[in-house]
Amino acid sequence: MSTTNNSNDVEKGRVQNISNNAGNGAGADVEPFGPNSGDPVSYQRYPSHIANPGPTGVFAFAMTTFLLSMFNVGTRGVSHPNVVVGMAIFAGGLTQFIAGMWEFPRGNVFGATAFSTYGSFWMSYATIFIPGSGILATFSNPQELNNAIGLFLITWFIVTFIFLLAVIRRNIAFSILLALLDIAFALLSAAEFTGSAAVQKAGGAFGIMTGLVAFYIGASELLHAEPQAIARLPQGLLHT
């Protein structure tokens, strides 16, 4: 199953006019949106030799989300998330941010915005748990720290909800992904406010489901892109 019907339009080397009508259904492209709500918007995508960075960004998000969520549910007795810091900086953070930057020249506004935004989320989240940052040391009251992290997560709940509004009814897989992620953010934020271990495990469970859906989306986009990438190779390379 391909998660987007138009994700490889640029790779086909054509300039296309794409209409952004509500009637396009789940298979329609998720961006952009016009200034007048409900009005059809025509836009163009231009040829580009940049490979699709979508699978890279989605896999980076999937790995980091899955690992942190496994810690949140206490898998194998792990209760401290600090091991995820390295992955959050370089995979979920840097790799995903770079994927977002490469989406801009491809004309994919949603992909560029989502990848770069969540890349900054992971880097900022990891920074909290780096001892050298001094962030944790500034809180003498543990509850104040929990409240601060809860507000941090609530902010990302709001951003994720806005992203969900952008893709709902346009892309089923990403709608499920963002809905699960939004629930995970809400539960983890509530766990910080209340100190409830059960709520934290529930948030971790939804995070695990989010990671698994992201793995599926990444694999789907990668497998969909491979035949087209092979088709563009010089014929001599195919017979070596």
Rank of each mutant, 00 (worst) to 15 (best):
L181Y: 03
S19D: 14
P142T: 09
L145I: 09
L237Q: 07
N24S: 11
G74L: 07
L238G: 04
A137G: 00
F97D: 03
G13S: 04
I208Q: 05
S220V: 05
G54F: 05
S220H: 09
N36K: 09
N24C: 08
S37D: 08
N82F: 11
I18G: 07
S7R: 13
A88P: 06
I98R: 01
A198W: 12
E144C: 01
G23T: 02
G236P: 11
E103Y: 07
G195S: 05
G38V: 00
G57H: 03
L238K: 15
L165E: 13
G23C: 11
S196I: 04
G107M: 07
H224M: 10
M63F: 09
I176D: 13
T56M: 15
N171T: 07
E192P: 11
I172T: 08
G57S: 02
S37C: 13
N5V: 08
A191T: 05
T194N: 02
I130C: 01
A202P: 08
N8E: 12
A173Y: 07
S124D: 05
Q143E: 12
V73M: 11
V109S: 11
N108F: 02
Q228M: 06
L136Q: 07
A205I: 06
A231K: 10
V159H: 09
L180T: 08
N82H: 11
F97S: 01
P234C: 05
V78C: 06
L180P: 11
P105L: 00
Q228T: 04
M87L: 04
F152G: 10
L164T: 14
A91P: 00
G34V: 02
S79A: 10
A231Q: 08
Y118A: 00
T56N: 11
V213M: 08
N6E: 15
T56P: 15
I183G: 11
F97K: 01
T160H: 02
A184V: 08
G207I: 01
I208K: 03
G54S: 09
A225S: 15
A26Y: 15
L237A: 06
L223I: 13
I217M: 00
G92M: 02
A126Y: 10
S220Y: 01
A205D: 00
Q44L: 11
G57C: 07
A166R: 13
F104M: 15
F121Q: 07
L178R: 03
I168W: 07
L153Q: 14
A198R: 15
I18R: 13
V199F: 11
L187K: 12
A51P: 14
A28C: 13
V30S: 00
F97C: 00
G134C: 09
W102T: 01
G34P: 02
P81D: 06
V159Y: 10
I89L: 00
S37E: 10
A26T: 10
S133T: 04
G13T: 05
I168S: 12
